[in-house]
Amino acid sequence: MPDVASQRSRGLVLAAGLQTDFVSPLSSGLGRYTYYEESLNTTEAPAEDNELGLETHDDRSPTDPGPGSKGGQGSIVVPADLNQLGFWLTLLLGTPDTTDNEDGSWTHVFESGADTLPSATLQRALGSGRWKIAKGLMVNSIAFGLAKSEDGYRTFRLDCMAREVYTAGAPIEADPAAMAARAKLPAKRGLTRLNSVVNAQLVSGEFTFANNLQREDYADSADDAGDLASAMEPGDLSFSGNPTYRFKRGAALNGAIDLFTSHTTPFAHEIEYARSDTSSLLIATPRCFAPPAVPAANGPGPVDFSTSITARQVVGETPAPLMTVTLTNAVESYS
Rank of each mutant, 00 (worst) to 15 (best):
L282G: 13
D277S: 13
C288H: 07
A143P: 00
V197S: 08
R163A: 04
F239P: 02
A162Y: 02
S308R: 06
S75A: 13
L202H: 02
D159Y: 01
M179Q: 08
L126K: 14
H57P: 00
K148F: 01
E44S: 07
T63N: 10
W88M: 14
A222M: 03
I283R: 10
T155P: 00
S24A: 10
P96M: 00
F289I: 08
V303L: 09
K132I: 10
F110E: 07
L54Y: 10
R287N: 12
A15N: 01
S112D: 02
K148V: 11
F305N: 02
T43H: 02
N242E: 12
A47C: 12
A180T: 07
H269C: 12
E173A: 04
N254Y: 02
Q123H: 06
T307C: 12
A178Q: 10
T43P: 06
S221M: 07
G113L: 01
F289Y: 15
F247T: 12
D58T: 14
D58C: 06
V23R: 15
G226A: 05
D227Q: 07
V331G: 07
G71D: 06
N212D: 11
P321G: 10
G255A: 04
T310V: 12
K148S: 11
Y245M: 05
D21L: 08
L52V: 13
L93Q: 00
E272Q: 15
A170L: 03
G94H: 05
A200P: 03
R249D: 07
L40F: 04
A296Y: 01
G152Q: 11
D97W: 01
L18T: 14
P292A: 14
A251Y: 05
V315I: 13
F156I: 04
G86T: 01
G104T: 05
T326Q: 02
L122R: 03
E270W: 14
N211M: 11
S308Y: 04
T192L: 06
E102M: 03
R8I: 12
T264W: 02
P62T: 14
V303W: 04
E332A: 15
Q123S: 10
T310C: 01
P96T: 02
F144A: 09
P176V: 05
R130V: 11
T167A: 15
N254L: 09
D220G: 09
K135H: 14
T42V: 12
C288E: 08
G205C: 10
L228F: 11
D97A: 15
G71Q: 01
L253N: 10
A134N: 04
D49M: 09
A225H: 05
F207G: 04
A143S: 15
G11I: 00
G17W: 01
A290N: 06
P300V: 11
A120Y: 05
A229G: 06
A256C: 03
E111Q: 08
F110H: 00
P62C: 07
S280T: 11
S230H: 04
F87G: 12
T43K: 09
A120S: 10
L18Y: 02
Y153D: 13
A293E: 03
G29A: 05
E44I: 09
D64C: 06
F144D: 07
L92A: 15
A170T: 11
E173G: 06
R275M: 05
N83M: 06
N50Y: 04
N41K: 15
S69D: 14
D81K: 08
Y166P: 00
R124F: 01
E332M: 11
A210W: 00
E150S: 08
E272T: 15
G299T: 10
D59S: 09
F209V: 13
